[in-house]
Amino acid sequence: MANIKIITDSTCDLSSAIVKELNIAIVPLYVVFKDVSYRDGVDITAAELYSKVNKLKELPKTSAPSPKDFHEVFKPYIDNGDDILYIGLSSRLSSTIQNAKIAANEFPEGRIKIIDSFNLSTGIGLLVLMAADFVKEGLTLKEIFARIQESLPKVKTSFVINTLEYLHKGGRCSAIQSFVGGMLKIKPIVQVVDGRMILGHKTRGKIEKSLRSLIELTMKDKDRIDLKRIIITHSEADEEAKLLKKGLEEALSPKSIIITSAGCVISSHCGPKTVGIIYLTK
């Protein structure tokens, strides 16, 4: 039986330690400042991205890996006799999945399975970790593909956005929303629904209040949450992530809470001090 190689993209926002431990391959997306392209997590970090935004007074553009990029990543594993499971960024947010499929079609049928996560950040990462569990259990590529597909609607992803500036500059909310949000200190909770980012519940005031609201939102699923693994993802919000972890430990006592940092593509959309909870329902 062929070995199974798990591949994902840089928006999965898993730590380098986890990626290395599980031998996961990453295909980077791109961030572009003034026609200069940087590979997410390779040529530029989130901290460096924010520094450039402050200096240039503009947000970068983001772009998907090309079919050629995917082909170059896929080929060595196929040549080595491995089968590939690729799990990537929602097709409703990016052309990443489309380009992965174009590349996969250049290889023998059945050797590469492509999964559209209909999610982002560690909403993808949670699926990648699940797939790695299945590989360790000895499941076949076909079996893993089926189980991950069944789990897609069970992934719940919610973020507190600390500033509307990035959503506004990126064209993701109107100037009026941005102005009113800033004046009233609104910190919206963004949820991933059907592969898209949806502006949901709005909180006002200090970030601590928003974190409590995020935990309250999570607790609505209390009896359905898979407590094996919960992920907290943040962008330059270490202390907020620790507060969120403490709150979840007290409220749910999960077996594992993993804290990860968002990469450049996710950070460029959501901005600094963004923090979120990602979990799987039963």
Rank of each mutant, 00 (worst) to 15 (best):
T8H: 15
T8Y: 10
S15T: 13
I18E: 13
K20P: 14
L22W: 09
L22I: 01
I24T: 07
I24R: 11
K34M: 14
S37I: 05
Y38I: 13
V42C: 07
V42Q: 15
A46H: 09
A47P: 00
A47R: 14
A47V: 00
L49M: 13
V53Y: 05
K57M: 12
S66A: 06
P67W: 03
E72N: 15
V73N: 07
P76F: 10
G81A: 04
D82G: 12
D82M: 14
L85N: 10
I87H: 10
I87N: 06
S94K: 01
S94H: 05
T96H: 03
I97E: 02
K101M: 12
F107N: 09
G110L: 11
I115C: 03
N119R: 01
I124W: 04
L126E: 07
L127W: 03
L129K: 10
L129C: 13
M130C: 01
A132S: 15
L152G: 10
S158T: 02
I161K: 04
R172D: 04
C173P: 03
S178M: 07
V180W: 08
G182A: 13
K185Q: 13
I189H: 10
V193C: 10
V193W: 01
G200T: 00
K206T: 09
K209P: 02
L217W: 02
M219N: 03
K220D: 03
I225N: 04
D226W: 03
D226A: 00
I231T: 01
I232N: 02
S235F: 01
E239G: 12
E250W: 00
S261C: 08
V265A: 10
G271Y: 03
T274N: 01
I277E: 00
